[in-house]
């Protein structure tokens, strides 16, 4: 067991965790932040994407102890109070989801992607979404939402 401090959505938490605990399990089970989903658990689907020190990572493939001291943002911390983050707003506007299971990971991946690349081309969007799988909408509206997000963020 190791005692770690994590700053999650602006609040610093101190927790004793098993060295082998995954970041996603600590977020969900220790901090009750269940908006971060576990999809494939094999670092393919991207449902568990969160920001660690500003970069999108798959929290099922990172140990919580590796994130000690890091600044973490999850889907719960993205909005500004009642004001949705532009990517959240764009997903609503474009109906970029069906069952919604992949949505938190999609939104976290896209919000990080647009920070690097605020005016992406279609090909750059496809490449930027490589790490996230959606099994129901077929991506068309998700890609629309990325473009709409980019507009909203101008």
């Amino acid at each position: 067991m190791t005692k770690i401090e994590l700053t999650v959505n602006g609040t610093t938490h101190s927790r004793e965790v098993e060295d082998r605990a995954l970041l996603v399990d600590v977020l969900r089970d220790h901090l009750q932040l269940t908006g971060t989903h576990i999809g494939c658990d094999t670092s393919q689907c991207g449902c568990c994407t969160v920001h660690v020190d500003g970069r999108a990572v798959k929290s099922c493939t990172m140990l919580a102890v590796q994130a000690a001291g890091a600044d973490i943002v999850t889907i719960e911390g993205l909005s500004n109070g009642d004001q949705l983050h532009p990517v959240q707003q764009a997903f609503t506007d474009c109906h970029a989801l069906q069952c919604g299971f992949c949505t938190p990971g999609m939104i976290m991946a896209i919000s990080a992607f647009l920070k690097d690349n605020p005016h992406p081309t279609d090909d750059e969007i496809y490449h930027g979404l490589e790490g996230n799988l959606c099994r129901c909408t077929g991506y068309i509206n998700i890609v629309k939402a990325v473009k709409r997000s980019a507009k909203l963020m101008k």
């Binding site: 670092s43 991207g46 994407t49 970069r55 999108a56 990572v57 798959k58 493939t61 990172m62 991946a109 990080a112 992607f113 490449h127 930027g128 490589e130 790490g131 996230n132």
Partner: peptide, 12 residues
């Protein structure tokens, strides 16, 4: 390097 894995993998 840009073609490795996906963005999340490239970040780690």
């Amino acid at each position: 390097a840009y073609q490795i894995g996906d963005p999340q993998v490239r970040n780690r």
